[in-house]
Nucleic acid binder design. Structure first.
Lengths: 233, 233
DNA sequence: TGACATTTTAAGTAGCTACATATTACCGTT
DNA sequence: AACGGTAATATGTAGCTACTTAAAATGTCA
């Protein structure tokens, strides 16, 4: 009976979580100091600290030095999304993955691409258009721009064989990643590529990555009709 | 010069991150034991542990007791989304928030709603349809089902005044939340409500919440044309 | 050789201490 | 009352020790 009377930080976390949401503490309210909670629950401050850190991570509370801990005044639903390499996504569904390079061309980045990277001066980039297939049927269309200053090696990659998606994820770690989701209507070109009807509603995922402030790539991933993005846990 | 020669866990994390992605360790490779890394970097194991925990959180590595630490074999892009209460979202943009209840009715949950909750037997629910406004213009349409067994108090809430969205987030904490994003074409009814054109592509956010296994609510949030969802950090 | 029990190992957790750091709170001066 | 410097304080971080636990590795026996 030694282990049972030690409180785990998860227990402490759930205890506090429960107290908060039973109405004992409402949005904006200040919670007792870590040390006091530790006393009260008869555990170490470090245990409370870990519990609080977790609650802070999920957006339930806000912590500030000296300011103390308070319940987040504007509760948010915080969710985590995992976006795998497209090949893995297809294979996990039990389908056969295929890939087609549509076009690649070196050119100066247009205004919209520069904007995605928060840049103003012109940059030389490689534009790559490709189609991902699932059991020989169109699955995703990608329209990608890769910064040649940051990733010159992309020129030596045979993009007929290796998808830029996979090559970049495996070879180019990033320190910042912005994502953006929205819906568009398929235009004629897209619908042909994706085997959809013109006007179909499509989910679009836009992703831009940087390494230490330097732009790596920005990509518009256009999904097929009916595609759904789910949270992981 | 006392503080500078203590390594912070963030430094350790970045060091390992860097090693991994300079190619020193590739996907699936096993990393040294925490204790060895601690020795090598001349810091405490607990510092390495914290660094590793963080890398594990962002999906870069996988850790298993006895199995050790290895680089995630299938790298994923992990992103965090914050979905605020709609009123806060509108007000943060500097617009005036408005809300209209369209309809509410108690009824047995249809098959699709039961499916969202992974239930099979019929359940009595309150269906709520409402419109969120931004500066008097349609902003979001919500189609919600609230489980009356789990949240009987919803009957006493005046939904003409309080949006179910806000009331639930403030009063009904959840232990599980599933999200789903996809695109649909606006049908006649939606386009009328949202002031869009029939056939417009709309982003739809579906959210279901539970408290300790008991269903709370499931809601389809239909956004206006052009709506974009962004990652937080 | 294969199934099962045992040992070993590496991460996970809890507690303690000491110190760092960001703010808030306070107080004195102008 | 406004300003500015100082003290007080709650969280954040690092290090150490000790113990727990999941799971891989090994050994044992049929």
């Amino acid at each position: 009976m030694k282990s049972t009377n030690r409180l785990s930080w998860k227990y402490v976390r759930d205890e506090i979580h429960h107290e908060i949401l039973s109405g004992r503490y409402g949005p904006g309210d200040r919670l007792p100091r870590d040390a006091d909670i530790a006393d009260q629950l008869n555990c170490a401050r470090s245990t409370v600290q870990r519990a609080m850190q977790d609650l802070s991570d999920i957006g339930l509370i806000e912590r500030r030095r000296k300011g103390g801990t308070r319940v987040h005044p504007e509760p948010v639903t915080r969710a985590t999304l995992d976006i795998p390499i497209t090949r893995h996504e297809v294979e996990k569904k039990g389908a056969r993955y295929g890939y087609q390079l549509i076009r690649q061309k070196e050119m100066s980045a247009p205004r919209t691409v520069l904007a995605a990277f928060e840049l103003t001066s012109p940059v030389s980039m490689l534009r790559i258009e490709a189609l991902h297939l699932s059991d020989n049927r169109p699955y995703m269309l990608e329209d990608r721009w890769v910064c040649l200053d940051t990733v010159p090696e992309i020129r030596d990659v045979d993009l007929e064989i290796h998808s830029a998606n996979e090559w970049l994820v495996l070879n180019r770690p990033y320190t910042r990643c912005d994502l953006r989701f929205y819906a568009i209507s398929a235009d004629q070109k897209m619908s042909e590529m994706l085997g959809a009807k013109t006007g179909d509603a499509l989910l679009l995922i836009e992703r831009s990555t940087w390494i230490d402030g330097a732009p790596i790539t920005t990509v518009k991933t256009i999904t097929t009709p009916g595609y759904q993005l789910l949270t992981s846990s």
